[in-house]
Design a protein around this nucleic acid. Structure first.
Length: 855
RNA sequence: GCCGAAGUGGUGAAAUGGUAGACACGCCGCACUCAAAAUGCGGUGGGGGCAACCCCAUGUCGGUUCAAGUCCGACCUUCGGUACCA
């Protein structure tokens, strides 16, 4: 053993716990720093080495901020609802709350063994009723709010303007439907992935897995809770300007929201006896309107049944059935093959400009969930429409002339409008503007901004989730739980199998489902919330975890969330959903006056994945998983922390290398022996190691020591700010190498250096701090100040280049004038020789660095 | 297909447009040791030369510049995300 880490680490972990070293400061006159990790799902497998990578980085910055005098909020919690615990319960009959608790205990033990400076008194658990009380409370806020499109914000549903024609007792039902249609939480029939054999709905991500096992999954409309995130599409997009996030993540969010500008155009249906039906389409290319030769509706488009010819109805039904059975994978394959299927429905629309009859089709390449679920097809200028037209023998009419006139159809790029009377000869961008103006004038359509973002499917047919606090009376009217009655507890249960009807296991508990309120017989909602719910607001709870009345007191919210979470670190796999959902909830709470910052997470960083030693992803089946417990037992927590930070840039994917851990372990041993002298073997080690007096003696060259010390103070301090922790560690190694070389560095430098090491290797730092005779914990000592004066040098090694190639070097005084620099350079023998007989055309001097002769 | 990130020694990696390879791992050597481990010290991109030194080298090909790993253009490869979004 290179140094007694086990003993040291245990000692200081106990010390921190007993002394509450990391209790969050509550003196609100001090500046705050809120640094947050994405909280883990406490799985049965325990922590793997990927978790502590981000946790160590945040711990280092949290520890530095504390030493800099900030109030630091650095908490940890558990995203503990979720499928694995429920699956396990279905197999074993053991209640998910029991396994969840065991897993949490294990995670907590592992995290504590790594010496993270969390304030453990602020732990949150999404499955605790004290916590999900407020998850349900936020749900009620969503349920009881609507989005005011004029003010562009959410408002209480009680402020919704009810149209005059819906007033009065006779219109009660219509009025309720109107209100329900505006709520931010609403019920809809949405196509979901239904597996009859499993008796449950599957998430998109799960479909492939089960289909692979031979199960049949179909798309089926089912009653679901939805959250109206689409109302926030524009703000979720534009507010990205306010955050400091990785460029790639911003791009992913933007793509996910998927804004496109174009036009909404209305086509009348031919020959309809009243009512006069219309098809609305969205297009980003209104300039191709003259090229429309057919139209396509999504197979499940509601208008199809109303306008289809009798003769086509059988074929339509067959087509609908086959598309319903198609999985997302099938659809992707179809798209790749560029083969199109569809059915002519025997009806026609009228072209709004030419009055021509346009045939109508249904085809599954048109999706009900995007735009209006119907398109105007322009085969000459859209690849999909082109493929369809070719297969069905439909006319292809070119209306855009591209720059390269030889280009083959379909031409999807911009060009000049042709065969288009109203805007003949205009460039695409101008043609778009002109046609939209024309459509608006003639009331045939209007400008439209469309988003890809869909509303958030918020219900799951699961037991292990937050109950939705809404009931239904015998007429189906919705009755929300009173806020004062929350939490609506998840009932005890012995079985966790789905009800088989597509309802959640809660439907098997009639005594819970059926209840009475004011003499009204009510049935509870049996679907539960998705796992995303609890994680969409936990960062707010950390500001005030014990508050029973509110998710957080206004004062604490305002203090800790001022400007949002200062630094949020977690995996890139959450770049879209979790971060989008949390931002959405945050904005709703902002609109309703419950939070004060526009965005929840100011700065975001993703740690890279740690691969197995073989360079592939760690997985049980490959047998390349590294367990942090093993590493801690063998090398200690400080080595583990330092190694993970030394591996490479935080954001980068990188393989685990057991050989390199040895190097870090050796470095920490070197630090230990530097301070405590060479204690050599275990037997010889004194019980209480004494300080290495030689190290603390005044240095022979104090200036040199102070120079490398202050270089290190600067480099380590700056690098922690940019989370370049690998190079911070390199600099500390340089300092230690230098200390070994000079043998004496003096007490001041010895003390300052150990403070720099403290955020990285806190246990050893405490041990040395104590040995140095300092009082209290080093975690609360003042961070060293950098002084540039010590870095000032009197001379530098000048590099002399000729035509950009190095031809010599010479020692020169700092601040030398350009002219002196040049003559000194010309005096160097090698340079003299190289310049012999050549004409110097130009001389470039980089002050205090180098000179380049151009010959 | 589209969007994004990245390609530097045997390996992990450093490098405000200004000395490419800091710091480590590994390897080689030396000291300590009967020996080994541990530890300490030194060397280590490739090629040439006794040497001083010289040449080559940051995925490929071009360009800008006195000067390019870094900026610009095209391409290749790898990894992520996404996918009939009208």
């Amino acid at each position: 053993m290179s140094y007694p880490f086990a003993e040291i680490e245990k000692k200081w972990q106990q010390y921190w716990e007993q002394n509450q070293t990391f209790a969050t400061g509550e003196d609100f006159s001090k500046p705050k720093y809120y640094v947050l990790d994405m909280f883990p799902y406490p799985s049965g497998a325990g922590l793997h080495v990927g978790h502590p990578e981000g946790y160590t980085a945040t711990d280092i910055i949290a520890r530095k901020r504390r030493m800099q005098g900030f109030n630091v909020l650095h908490p940890m919690g558990w995203d503990a609802f979720g499928l694995p615990a429920e699956r396990y319960a279905m197999q074993t009959g053991i209640h998910p709350s029991i396994t969840t608790k065991q897993n949490i205990d294990n995670f907590r033990r592992q995290l504590k063994s790594l010496g993270f400076s969390y304030d453990w008194s602020r732990e949150v658990d999404t499955t605790s009723p004290d916590y999900y009380k407020f998850t349900q409370w936020i749900f009620l806020k969503l349920f009881n709010s609507f989005y005011d499109t004029a003010q562009k914000k959410a408002r209480p549903i009680s402020e919704l303007t009810i149209p005059a024609e819906l007033q009065g007792e006779a219109k009660k039902k219509e009025r309720e439907n109107f209100i329900a249609g505006h709520r931010l939480a609403y019920i809809a029939n949405m196509p979901v992935n239904w597996c009859a054999e499993l008796g449950t709905v599957l998430a998109n991500e799960e479909v492939d897995e089960w289909v692979g096992k031979g199960y049949k999954v179909e798309r089926k409309p089912m009653r679901q809770w939805m959250l109206r995130i689409t109302a926030y599409a524009e703000r979720l997009l534009t507010d990205l300007e306010h955050v400091d996030w990785p460029a790639g993540t911003l791009e992913l969010q933007k793509n996910w929201i998927g804004q496109s500008t174009g036009a909404l155009i209305r086509f009348d249906i031919v020959g309809a006896t009243p009512p006069q039906y219309q098809i609305e389409v969205f297009t980003t290319r209104p300039d191709t309107l003259y090229g429309v030769t057919f139209m396509v509706l999504a197979p499940e488009h509601p208008l199809v049944d109303k306008i289809a010819a009798e003769s086509a109805k059988a074929e339509i039904e067959t087509y609908r059935k086959t598309t319903a059975l198609k999985t997302d994978l099938d659809r992707q394959l179809d798209a790749a093959k560029k083969e199109k299927t569809g059915v002519a429905i025997g009806a026609h629309a009228i072209h709004p400009l030419t009055g021509e009859k346009i045939p109508l089709y249904i085809a599954d390449y048109v999706l009900m969930g995007y735009g209006t679920g119907a398109i105007m097809a322009v085969p000459a200028h859209d690849e999909r429409d082109y493929a369809f037209a070719q297969q069905f023998g439909i006319e292809i009419r070119q209306v855009v002339q591209p720059r390269e006139s030889a280009a083959e159809l379909p031409v999807t790029e911009d060009g000049v409008a042709i065969n288009s009377p109203i805007f003949e000869g205009l460039k695409t961008s101008e043609a778009k503007a002109k046609i939209i103006a024309h459509l608006e004038k003639e009331k045939l359509g209007e400008r439209r901004i469309q988003y890809k973002l869909r509303d958030w499917l918020f219900s799951r047919q699961r037991y292990w989730g937050e109950p939705v606090p809404v009931s239904f009376d015998e007429d189906g009217a919705m009755v929300a739980e009173e806020e004062s009655a929350l939490p609506l507890l998840l009932p005890e249960s012995k079985t966790f199998q789905p009800a088989g009807t597509g309802e959640s296991p809660l439907a098997n508990l009639p005594e819970w489902v059926n209840h009475e309120k004011n003499g009204r017989k009510l049935r509870r909602e049996t679907n539960t919330m998705p796992q995303w719910a609890g994680s969409s607001w936990y960062y707010l709870r950390f500001a005030d975890t014990t508050n029973k009345e509110r998710f957080a007191s206004p004062e604490k919210e305002k203090y800790w969330l001022n400007g949002g979470v200062d630094l949020y670190v977690g995996g890139a796999e959450h770049a879209v959903l979790h971060l989008l959902y949390a931002r959405f909830w945050h904005k709703v709470l902002y609109d309703l006056g419950y939070v004060t910052s526009v965005e929840p997470f100011k700065k975001l960083v993703h740690q890279g994945i740690i691969l197995g030693e073989d360079g592939s992803k760690m997985s049980k089946s490959r047998g390349n998983v590294v367990n942090p417990d093993t590493v801690v037992a063998e090398y200690g927590a400080d080595t583990f922390r330092l190694y993970e930070m030394f591996m490479g840039p935080l954001e980068q994917m990188k393989p685990w290398q057991s050989k390199s851990i040895e190097g870090i372990y050796r470095f920490l041993g070197r630090v230990y022996r530097l301070y405590f002298g060479n204690t050599n073997s275990e037997e010889n080690a004194p019980a209480k190691p004494t300080l290495n007096a030689k190290l603390l003696a005044p240095p022979a060259d104090e200036k040199a020591v102070l120079k490398v010390l202050h270089q290190t103070i600067k480099k380590v301090g700056d690098d922690i700010e940019t989370l370049s922790l690998n190079t911070a560690i390199s600099q500390m190694m340089i300092f230690v190498n230098e200390a070994y070389r000079v043998e004496s560095i003096g007490k001041e430098a010895a003390t300052a250096f150990i403070k720099l090491l403290a955020p990285f290797a806190p246990h050893m730092a405490e041990e040395i701090w104590q040995a140095l005779g300092e009082k209290g914990s080093i975690a609360l000592a003042a961070w060293p100040q950098f002084n540039a004066d010590y870095l000032v040098e009197s001379s530098f090694e000048a590099v002399i280049q000729i035509n950009g190639k190095i031809r010599g070097r010479t020692e020169l005084a700092m601040g030398i004038s350009d002219a002196d620099f040049e003559s000194a350079a010309r005096g160097v023998d090698a340079v003299k020789a190289a310049l012999e007989g050549k004409t110097v055309r130009k001389v470039i001097v980089v002050k205090n660095k180098m000179i380049n002769f151009v010959v």
